[in-house]
Design a protein around this nucleic acid. Structure first.
Length: 858
RNA sequence: GCGAGAGUGGCGGAACUGGUAGACGCGCUGGAUUUAGGAUCCAGUAGGUAAUUCCUGUAGGGGUUCGAGUCCCCUCUCUCGCACCA
C-alpha cells in the first residue's frame, strides 16, 4: 500500500473496472432483485458540464450506488436533450450543420461524465436529435393526432422576436420575456399546432394528490398553473340585438350588484354591440390596447383603461339595463373573454368604477368583525343600494356576509345565495355551473430548423394528412446548403426538395409541414424510451415500460416545476390511455435540488448572485476542478457544502476539507495494513467483552451506520458526511490507546469502506482492493450495505442536564436503568445544583427520561 | 397584491415529536514536528468577562411553558412562483 492515495491513477482504473464488470448495466440478471429507476433530468448538450450539472448527477450517482448496495437492480440511464436553438445559432455563426455542433458537445459531455465516474447504463444512451429517437417523437405526435389531441388553429401567440419563433405560455416569464432568448415577447396571430393538454387538466390536477413524494412547492405551483376555478357561465341578452354575451364568474352571488359588463378588446362581439356614437372611440381603444399588450403586459395593474360601447345588456334577475364597456383588464383568452362587473365585491371592478364614475350597488352586508380586514369601509347607500360616496368605501368588499338589496334573497348568507342563484339560472336557462382552467393548450410548433419535424403533409385537396408511420422518421435535411437564418419561417420552408412531396392520399403535389416541435415534446417521454432504448420496432416495449416505470427517484432543478414536469405527466397519461403503459404518472418521487449560483461583481461594483449556466456565461466547468482534486473530492465537497435542496453559492473553499478527510482515512488504513490479510474480522461483538476503547469505537461505528443510512433516505447527504468525519476523528483519537484491538479496528475499517462507497466511489473501491488484496476481483459495490447492531446503540450510562429555573447548571451521568426518582435524588443532592437551590424552596422537579431534570426553586 | 419558503458564529451549515444552541467542515489563533511548508498532529475558536465564572445570545417585539431556534400573535428583511384568471 502506498503512503498516499493517488486519485489520478485510481479513478481511471476503477472507471474502467466498473465498465468491464457492467456494474452500471440494468436488467442483466434474473435474480429477482427488486427494480429501482433513478433518473436525473438529462442535460442540454451545451458543451461541457459545469458545477451545477455536477451537483445534479452526483446526487443521482450517490443514490444509484446506495441502491445497488442495498440489493436493487438499478436503472440509471443518461442522454441528451439535444434539439434546440443554440445548435442552430452556432451553425449561423460558424457555419456547419447543427448536428455536428451538437454531436461534438455530446461527445465532450459523455467523456466528462465518464471522468466523473458516474455510473450510467451507457447501453441506453440516447439523444433526442437522433433519427432513431425523433422517429418516435413523431410517432408520439401522430398518436396524439389520432386521439384528437393535436390540432392546428390560428391564434394570438407569443412571438419571440430574437429567436424568430413562437413560444408556449409556460415558456414566457412573468415579465413577458421568452425563457430562452430573454426577449420581450410580442403577440402575433399565426396558424399553429397545439397539444390539447387542457383535456387532461382535471386529471393532472387530481393526480397531484397522489404524488406524495413530490415537494409540496412543486405540487402547489402546478395546481396554481392549472388554475381550476368553479363558477357559473351567465348569458346576458344584448338590448335591441339578437346577440348574447356570455360571461364567466366565480361570484354569481354578486349578480344583483352588477352595474356594467366588460368585454376584452379582442372579444368577437365588441363591434356588434358598439353603437355609431362610440364606434371610432372603441376602434381607437382596441387598437391601442393591442399595442399596449405588445409593449408591456406589466403596465396595467394600477391604471385600468376602457371605453363604453353604447350597448346594453339586461340583468336577468331584476331586468335592469346596464352598459357594456370594453376594457383590457379583461383577458380575451380566459373564461369567455367577458365579465360582469360588480364594483362592490371586486377590487378591479371597484377601481374601474371609481375611475369612470360607474355606479356601485351594495349587495353584501359583511359581519361586523370582518370589516377592518380588507381596508373596506362600510358606506352609506341610497334607498336602492347605490353607494353615495364611492371613494369613502376605500376598497371592495370581498368578505362573506348577508345579502342586501338583492330582492327576495335579502337576509340569506352570500354562500347560500351562491347555490340558490346557480340553481335558478340552470332552471330558467340563462346560465349554468361550469369549471374554468387557467391552463391553455400547449403550443408546440416552432419556426426553427433544429427540432423534430412535424410529420404532417398539407395537400391542397385532401387537407392535413399524417405521414404514415412506416415512413417515419421524417428526417431533417442534411448538407451544408441550408440557410438557418431566422426569417419568421422555419428554414425548412426554403428547402424545396424537402418540402415538396406527393400527397400520401391522392398523390398530387403537396407540402410538408415546415414547423418543428418544441423541444419539450422530446423530453416529455425520454424516461419511457430509456426502458427500452434500442427498440427499432416500437416506441418502447410495453413489458419493459411496465417493469421499469415509474421512475422511483427523479432528480432535477425546480426551474422545471411547471414546464417539463407538467408536460411529462400529460404525455404519460396519454400513452397510458393508449394502452402502452400501466402507469399514469411517470415520476413516483421527485427531488428538486437547489441551484448552484455564482457571485459576480458587476462593472459598476455591485454584486449579483446568478444561477450558473452556460448561456449566462458564469458556468464553472467541472473538469478542471476534477482534474485538480479528483472526482471523489469534488463531489464530496459539493455534497457536504449544503443540503442538496438548497441553493448554494459556489466556491472551492471546502475542497481542502474533503481532500484532508480522504487522506486521513487513507493513512488510517495505511497504518493498519498489516492486519488485513492476516485475519478475518468478526462482524459483531458482544459489548460486555470489550474494553472501553474498543467499545466506544464499535459503538461509534454503529451510530454512524444508522445515521448515514437514515440521512441517505432523507437526502441529508451533508449530515451523513459529517458522520463520516466524526467517526474518522474518533478513530484517530482512539488509535493512540494501547487497548484498541486489531479485530475491532479491522472490523471497523472493513465496514467504513462500504459506508464510503456512495460518497467517494473510486476511493472506496481502491481501499477495498487494498484490503482484499490484488488477486481479489469483486467490486465493493457488490457488497451489501452494512446494517447496524442495535445492541451497540444501547447506552449504559446517560448524561442528564440539570436545569434550575430554566438554566442549565450541571450535568450528571447515571446508569441508563435509573428510574426518575433516583435521578431526581441525585440531581437535587448534586453540589453544583445545590449552589443554585440553596436557601430556596424546591417547588417542582420535572424529570424528562434520558434527557434532563428541570428544577423550579423559589 | 396573492401563494410558498427562509432568516442561527467570520463563512457553509447542525439541532428527531419543545428538552444542554452552534454537530461537522472551511477559515482563523496558538503549540508540536519539520531544512521548509499552503504537509501532518494537538489545542482553541458565538459575544462579553480575570475566570473550568457568570451574563447575553438563533432578524426584531410580545405571548404560552418548568423549559422556545422549534409552538402562537405582530413587525421587518430576503428568495422563489403567480401576477388584472373574473
Amino acid at each position: 500500500m502506498n503512503e498516499q492515495y493517488d486519485f489520478q491513477l485510481a479513478e481511471p482504473r476503477w472507471q474502467a473496472f466498473w465498465e468491464k464488470i457492467k456494474l452500471s448495466n440494468a436488467g442483466l440478471s434474473d435474480t429477482g432483485k427488486p427494480k429501482y429507476y433513478c433518473l436525473e433530468m438529462f442535460p442540454y448538450p451545451s458543451g461541457d458540464l459545469h458545477i451545477g450539472h455536477m451537483k445534479n448527477y452526483a446526487i443521482g450517482d450517490l443514490i444509484t450506488r446506495f441502491k445497488i448496495m442495498q440489493g436493487y437492480d438499478v436503472l440509471h440511464p443518461m442522454g441528451y436533450d439535444a434539439f434546440g436553438l443554440p445548435a442552430e445559432n452556432a451553425a449561423i455563426k460558424n457555419g456547419g450543420h447543427p448536428k455536428d455542433w451538437t454531436q461534438q458537445n455530446m461527445n465532450a459531455m459523455h467523456s466528462a461524465f465518464k471522468k466523473m465516474g458516474i455510473l450510467y447504463d451507457w447501453d441506453r444512451e440516447l439523444a433526442t436529435c437522433q433519427p432513431e429517437y425523433y422517429k418516435w417523437t413523431q410517432y408520439l405526435f401522430l398518436l396524439l393526432y389520432s386521439r384528437g389531441l393535436a390540432y392546428r388553429k390560428e391564434a394570438l401567440v407569443n412571438w419571440d422576436p430574437v429567436d424568430q419563433t413562437v413560444v408556449a405560455n409556460e415558456q414566457v416569464s412573468a415579465e413577458g420575456c421568452s425563457w430562452r432568448s430573454g426577449a420581450l415577447v410580442e403577440k402575433k396571430s399565426i396558424v399553429q399546432w397545439f397539444l390539447k393538454i387542457t383535456d387532461y387538466a382535471d386529471r393532472l390536477l387530481q393526480d397531484l394528490d397522489r404524488l406524495e413524494h413530490w415537494p409540496e412547492t412543486v405540487r402547489t405551483m402546478q395546481r396554481n398553473w392549472i388554475g381550476k376555478s368553479r363558477g357559473v357561465e351567465i348569458e346576458f341578452q344584448v338590448t335591441d340585438s339578437p346577440d348574447k354575451i356570455r360571461v364567466f364568474t366565480t361570484r354569481p352571488d354578486t349578480l344583483f350588484g352588477m352595474t356594467y359588463v366588460v368585454l376584452a378588446p379582442e372579444h368577437p362581439l365588441v363591434h356588434a354591440v358598439t353603437t355609431e356614437k362610440y364606434r371610432s372611440q372603441v376602434t381607437e381603444y382596441c387598437k391601442s390596447a393591442e399595442k399596449m399588450s405588445e409593449i408591456n403586459r406589466l403596465a396595467a395593474t394600477e391604471d385600468k383603461t376602457g371605453s363604453p360601447t353604447g350597448g346594453y345588456v339586461v340583468n336577468p334577475v331584476n331586468g335592469e339595463k346596464v352598459p357594456i364597456w370594453v376594457a383590457d383588464y379583461v383577458i380575451g383568452s380566459y373564461g369567455t373573454g367577458a365579465v360582469f362587473a360588480c364594483p362592490y365585491g371586486d377590487e378591479r371592478d371597484y377601481a374601474f368604477a371609481c375611475k369612470y364614475d360607474l355606479p356601485i350597488r351594495k349587495v353584501i352586508e359583511p359581519a361586523q368583525n370582518t370589516l377592518i380586514e380588507n381596508g373596506f369601509v362600510n358606506v352609506e347607500t341610497d334607498e336602492n343600494g347605490f353607494v353615495i360616496d364611492k371613494k369613502s368605501m376605500q376598497n371592495a368588499c370581498v368578505v362573506d356576509g348577508e345579502m342586501v338589496f338583492s330582492g327576495e334573497y335579502n337576509g340569506m348568507s352570500n354562500r347560500d345565495f351562491w347555490r340558490a342563484i346557480a340553481d335558478r339560472m340552470e332552471k330558467e336557462g340563462w346560465g349554468k355551473q361550469t369549471v374554468t382552467y387557467r391552463l391553455r393548450d400547449w403550443l408546440v410548433s416552432r419556426q426553427r430548423f433544429w427540432g423534430a419535424p412535424i410529420p404532417i403533409i398539407h395537400c391542397p385537396s385532401c387537407g392535413e394528412i399524417p405521414v404514415h408511420t412506416d415512413q417515419l422518421p421524417v428526417r431533417l435535411p442534411e448538407g451544408d446548403n441550408i440557410d438557418y437564418m431566422p426569417k419568421g419561417k422555419s428554414p425548412l420552408a426554403a428547402h424545396s426538395e424537402w418540402v415538396n412531396v406527393p400527397c400520401p392520399k391522392c398523390g398530387d403535389a403537396a407540402q410538408r409541414d415546415t414547423d418543428t416541435m418544441d423541444t419539450f415534446v422530446d423530453s416529455s417521454w425520454y424516461f419511457l424510451r430509456f426502458c427500452d432504448a434500442r427498440n427499432d420496432n416500437a416506441i418502447f416495449d410495453q413489458k419493459s415500460a411496465n417493469h421499469w416505470m415509474p421512475v422511483d427517484q427523479y432528480i432535477g432543478g425546480v426551474e422545471h416545476a411547471i414546464l417539463h414536469l407538467l408536460y411529462a405527466r400529460f404525455i404519460q397519461k396519454v400513452v397510458h390511455d393508449h394502452g402502452l403503459t400501466e402507469h399514469s404518472e411517470p415520476f413516483k418521487a421527485l427531488f428538486t435540488q437547489g441551484m448552484v449560483q455564482t457571485r459576480q461583481i458587476m462593472p459598476d461594483g455591485s454584486e449579483i448572485v446568478a444561477t450558473m449556466s452556460k448561456s449566462k456565461g458564469n458556468a464553472v466547468p467541472v473538469l478542471p476542478f476534477v482534474q485538480e482534486y479528483g472526482s471523489d473530492a469534488a463531489r464530496l465537497t459539493i455534497l457536504f457544502a449544503s443540503p442538496p435542496d438548497r441553493d448554494m453559492i459556489w466556491s472551492e473553499e471546502g475542497v481542502d476539507g474533503s481532500v484532508r478527510l480522504m487522506s486521513r482515512i487513507w493513512r488510517l488504513y495505511y497504518n493498519y495494513q498489516d492486519i488485513f490479510g492476516k485475519m478475518k474480522f468478526p462482524k459483531t461483538f458482544d459489548l460486555s467483552n470489550l474494553n472501553p476503547t474498543d467499545k466506544s469505537a464499535y459503538q461509534k461505528l454503529h451510530w454512524a451506520i444508522k445515521k448515514i443510512t437514515d440521512d441517505m433516505s432523507d437526502f441529508h447527504f451533508n449530515t451523513a458526511i459529517a458522520a463520516i468525519y466524526e467517526l474518522t476523528n474518533l478513530l484517530y483519537k482512539l488509535k493512540e490507546h494501547d487497548d484498541l484491538s486489531d479485530p475491532v479496528m479491522g472490523g471497523i475499517l472493513e465496514t467504513l469502506v462500504l459506508l464510503l462507497g456512495p460518497f467517494v466511489p473510486h476511493f472506496a473501491e481502491e481501499l477495498w482492493r487494498q484490503i482484499r488484496g490484488a488477486t481479489y476481483e469483486k467490486s465493493v459495490f457488490h457488497q451489501s450495505w452494512p446494517k447496524y447492531d442495535p445492541a451497540a446503540l444501547i447506552k449504559e450510562e446517560i448524561t442528564y442536564a440539570i436545569q434550575v429555573n430554566g438554566k442549565v447548571r450541571a450535568q450528571i451521568t447515571v446508569p441508563a436503568d435509573s428510574d426518575a426518582d433516583a435521578v431526581k435524588k441525585i440531581a437535587l443532592n448534586f453540589p453544583k445544583v445545590q449552589k443554585w437551590t440553596g436557601g430556596k424552596k424546591i417547588k417542582r422537579v420535572i424529570v424528562v427520561a434520558k434527557k434532563l431534570v428541570s428544577i423550579v426553586a423559589k
